[in-house]
């Protein structure tokens, strides 16, 4: 093993170890201080108690995780297909873009918490999943739309000229030039959008309120009301894990699709 390779491995190990050591230290201090000052569990439960609550309520918490995860994934999927389709429409037709883009921006800048009650009334509390989906979709789709639009426009102009010289159809230009050129932008949008879909799902669940929710967000509200702070933390932990998994899934996808050709996914050679 040459020295450069050894250094790289050491760096990678440290990158993993340093945050881990910090995390363990903080958890240890937390556990110690809670016991040392005899903090009441409904103010701040010790990590060991949170872990116990997680294990004890695992079946019901897992079911709630599934509810939130499925809303998040569906909203993300709809944001992806809707955002890409709309972006393609925008780049194919200037009038469509002029007509729709301002409304896409309005949808984006209006806080989702403010729209939520309206959506809930329209959709009806009996269709709560649909309402959650719509709300999570509103939050998640804009990064996909704006990034993909930018990406489709960023195709090299001389490559466009070349396609024209060879008599390419609009469809060929789209599928063989504009979409591949937009892929890095789309993937960057998906990375943002994946996290936003989760946030949208959680916020929507909070707003949907009592009795209807079965997802993790509602479990947090419910546990808070019952002063079961340990379970609150357990649900929160599951939400964080979900967000992290989504983030790494997107990063993995990005690496998988771009590693061969895009500068962002290629290690610098010097």
């Amino acid at each position: 093993m040459n020295p450069a390779e050894a250094k790289r491995r050491r760096d990678r190990l440290m990158q993993f170890l340093v945050p881990l050591v910090l995390g363990v230290a903080v958890l240890g201090a937390w556990e110690f201080l809670v016991h040392f000052y005899a903090v009441r569990p409904f103010v701040l439960p010790a990590p060991s108690r949170i872990w116990a609550a997680l294990l004890a309520d695992l079946p019901s918490l897992a079911a709630s995780t599934w509810v939130t995860l499925s809303v998040t994934m569906m909203a993300f999927f709809l944001a992806l297909t809707g955002g890409v389709a709309l972006a393609i429409l925008f780049t194919q037709s200037r009038p469509v873009e002029m007509a729709l883009f301002p409304y896409a921006v309005i949808l984006q800048v209006t806080p989702v918490v403010a729209i939520a009650p309206l959506i809930l009334i329209w959709v009806g509390l009996e269709n709560i999943t649909t309402a959650l989906l719509i709300l999570a979709w509103i939050v998640a789709f804009f990064p996909i739309l704006s990034n993909t639009t930018l990406g489709l426009r960023s195709a090299d102009h001389n490559l466009l000229n070349l396609f024209q010289i060879y008599g390419a159809s609009r469809w060929q230009v789209l599928t063989q030039l504009q979409l591949p050129a937009a892929l890095p932008y789309l993937l960057a949008g998906m990375k943002i959008s994946g996290g936003l879909a989760l946030i949208g799902a959680v916020v929507a669940e909070f707003v949907a309120g009592s009795g209807t929710g079965t997802g993790l967000a509602w479990r947090i509200v419910e546990s808070g009301n019952r002063l079961n702070i340990a379970r609150m933390f357990a649900a929160l932990l599951l939400l964080s894990v979900m967000g992290i998994v989504i983030f790494f899934a997107m990063s993995g996808l990005q690496w998988l699709l771009l590693r061969k050709w895009h500068e962002s996914a290629v290690r610098r050679e010097n």
Partner: peptide, 19 residues
Amino acid sequence: TLMPWRTVFGNVYLPFRLK
């Protein structure tokens, strides 16, 4: 003016592919 997502072969194939 090459397509970075295609190999050398794929880039030279372009005129034929479009036809």
